[in-house]
Structures are given as C-alpha cells and as structure tokens.
Simulated scan of single mutants.
Amino acid sequence: MELAILKQVIVGLVDGRREQLADVAEQLFRFSEPGLEEYRSSALLADILEKEGFRLERGVAGLDTAFRAVFGSDGPTVAILAEMDALPGLGHACGHNVIAAAATGAAIALRHAVPDGEARIVVLGTPAEELGIGKVELVKAGIFQGVDAAIMVHPSSRRLVIKHYLGLARVRFTFFGRPAHAAAYPEEGVNALDGVIQTFNGINALRQQLRQDVRVHGIITDGGVAPNIIPAMAACHFYVRATDLHEVGRVRERVIACAEGAARATGCRLEVALDERVLAPLKVNHTLSALYSEQLAYLGLTEAAAPADKNLGSSDIGNVSQIVPTIHPHVPIGPGLHIHTEDFARATVSEQGRQAVVEGATAMALTAAELIARPELRKKMWDEFTSS
C-alpha cells in the first residue's frame, strides 16, 4: 500500500473509533487507580487489545499491572506506551487516561492498516509513572530490547512536540532521638523532629549555591505523636532534580550532608535510604520529533510557540529515551491548565480531552507508519541516537 493511502486509512480508522476511545478514557477516569494498583485499568486495556488480535503478556517485569501486547512478528518494531496510573486524591490530574486511550487507538489503527509482515506493533502498559517505577522496571527487565522507537503522548495546556524533563533522585531520612516529657523533663529528651527541621534549614541555605536548573523539595512524613512528647523518631522525604544525572548525584550528596550535619547537631541517630530507581532526563531525538511534527502539519495542527525548557518535571520516560529513540509530545486539552490539579483532571474527559485522545492516537499512528515505511529515516534516527 502506498504511504499516502496508508495515512488516509489510518486517519479514517482512528476517527471511526472516536467514541470507543473516548469511552476508554472515561472508564479509566472513573477507575482512577494509583500506581501499582491499576488492576481494572490494566485489564480494560489488555482485554481490548487481545480482542483486536494482539498477543498478551500480563504481569511483565515483575509488575502485576504491566503488560505487553504484540501484533506481528517481522519488520521494524514500534513500541507505544500506555501510562494508566492516577494520583491519590486527585484522580487523573496528570491525564494518564488520555495517554492510555490514545495509545490503544494508535495501536489498533496500525494493526488494521499496516500490511501483515511489515511491522511489529507493541503496546506496553506502563504502571506507576507517578511513583517513578513502571518504565524503570521495564527497562531493567529488557522489555525494550529489539524496539526501534518508543512513542507516547501526554496531555497538556499546549501542543508541544519537544519538552525537556529533569533527572530525579529520591532520598529518605529517618532521625532517631529519645522521648521525654516536653515540659517536665525536656533535658532528658533528644528531639528527632529537630533533626528534620535542621535538615530543611540546611537545604534552604544550600539553595543559594545551586545551579538554576536544580530543584530540591521535600516533605515531613513523620513528625511525632503529641506536642508534649519529645519525638523519638521523625522522618522526611526529598526529591533532587537537575538537567543531568551527574548534577543530580552531586546535589544529592550535599543534601545528605545537610541531614548528617543536622543529626550531629541535635544528637540524633540518622538512617539514610536511597531509592535506586533514579529517573534520567529525556534524551531528545530530533529526527523522530521532526517526523511527529510533519504529521501534525499533515493534520492541519499548529504547534505552540513555547520554550521546551520551562516548567520542567521528571518522568520515567527519560529512562526509556536513554536506550531507544523516544518521543513524548504533548496534546492540548485546554488552555491555562496545570497538571496535578482538579481542573486538569476534569479536562481530560471534556470535549477537548476527547479530541486530544483522537489527535494523539492519529499522530502517533501516522508517525509509526512513516517510520515503518522509510528505512532511511530509521537509520537517520538511530545515527542521531548513537552519536548524541
């Protein structure tokens, strides 16, 4: 089939399933399951793909809610990523219901449009993005071996093809002191909460000497049980972010030093717990990104004129981008919205949210179709990837 005709077929296939895809997004919105608990969400997506002829592996990479759905056995392999977890208390305020519905639509369109034997279409159900776990474990398990490109979309207030992401490391501090009556025998106590507070004070002083791209933020997870009892144990949890992993590691060591100093100053014993699942920055592949931009132009859609390096967060998609060419474009669900808010969650099932599902599914399927049909483009993409 000629590429031009194939692209027309894909547009029609996605448009014909518009209501089905919107229903998928709305069902996921109602489920709103947090990371590693996406049992109904995972089953919904996997069951749909299985009925469409995809071969299903459930519980991959040791994660109950992760899955791999494969159609075809020969040709270039394109992985389409379907995030599905929600935020505790906020539901789908990061729009993973839109992501999963768009991924499902793109995969189904490709399955019916691309001739047998010309490609291998893989849908990966990737749980617990908000916990920074799902894709990290899939990478460690070798799930991306043999994949030529990984693609997904994310809802946003604007249509963007390239958006940078920060590397991220997590560290927890637990301080142990000695309890005492806070009024009658304060001299007998060692206040673990003081250790936590001094850690925050030390980090706040450290901020004066941090690079502009660095972010350090944390919460107190345990601060004691009553005001009249000097806390015997207190704990806090910090994220350290930067545009490169070297700086993430360097700053994390300085944050640890703040906690160690606080422990010494207050007389507490300190336990440090480092999360080994460090999130990598997104490695941008300009060849693959440009191909997605071409599909937007084909659909008559205009990219927003917004910088790619502002208002940055982190995601485990960065870990995928370090081992295979990856794109993570943004599809618009409404102007002026910010992720992780109730307004954003509601917008995912609005009319604009429904349109974002269709846009994401169509643009991803068109991008994959061109990549499958053009070996010279795949070579250019990988040449860029290996040289950068």
Rank of each mutant, 00 (worst) to 15 (best):
R354Q: 11
A305S: 15
T386P: 05
V225G: 10
R159I: 04
E52N: 03
A106P: 03
D383Q: 10
V320Y: 00
F385C: 02
Y165C: 07
V278I: 15
M233F: 10
E351H: 12
R207H: 08
S42I: 00
F200S: 03
H92W: 06
I162F: 07
A265S: 15
R159P: 03
S289K: 12
P281I: 07
R40A: 01
R252N: 12
A347K: 11
I256V: 15
G105A: 04
R215E: 06
L45I: 08
E33V: 00
R207T: 08
G261E: 10
A128K: 08
D148C: 06
R40P: 01
A119I: 07
K140R: 15
D148W: 08
G218E: 05
L3C: 09
L90S: 05
H164L: 07
R269E: 15
R264T: 14
T174D: 08
E188Q: 06
R68F: 04
E50P: 03
V153R: 09
R250S: 15
Y185F: 12
V248N: 10
M364N: 04
R250T: 14
S315H: 00
V147P: 09
V161H: 09
G125S: 06
R277L: 11
V123A: 04
L270V: 09
R18F: 09
P155K: 04
M381W: 02
Y165D: 12
V331D: 01
A368G: 08
M381I: 10
F71M: 08
I5Q: 13
G91L: 03
G134L: 11
G267L: 11
A61K: 08
G189T: 00
E130I: 11
V136E: 12
E129Y: 11
V78S: 05
H237P: 10
N311C: 12
G318V: 00
V255P: 09
H338I: 13
M381K: 00
V278A: 13
S32T: 04
H340L: 10
D316Q: 01
G177N: 10
A368W: 04
P155G: 02
N285V: 11
D47K: 08
V251C: 09
S289D: 12
W382M: 02
Q322N: 02
A347G: 10
P332M: 01
A290I: 12
H181G: 05
L366P: 06
E38A: 00
P179V: 14
T341A: 12
G249K: 13
G177C: 07
I339W: 12
L291G: 13
H286R: 14
V320L: 02
C268Y: 10
S314E: 02
T77A: 10
P231C: 13
A150Q: 04
R58H: 06
A257K: 13
G261M: 11
K379V: 07
P335G: 13
V331N: 01
L296K: 13
T221F: 07
V320K: 02
S350T: 10
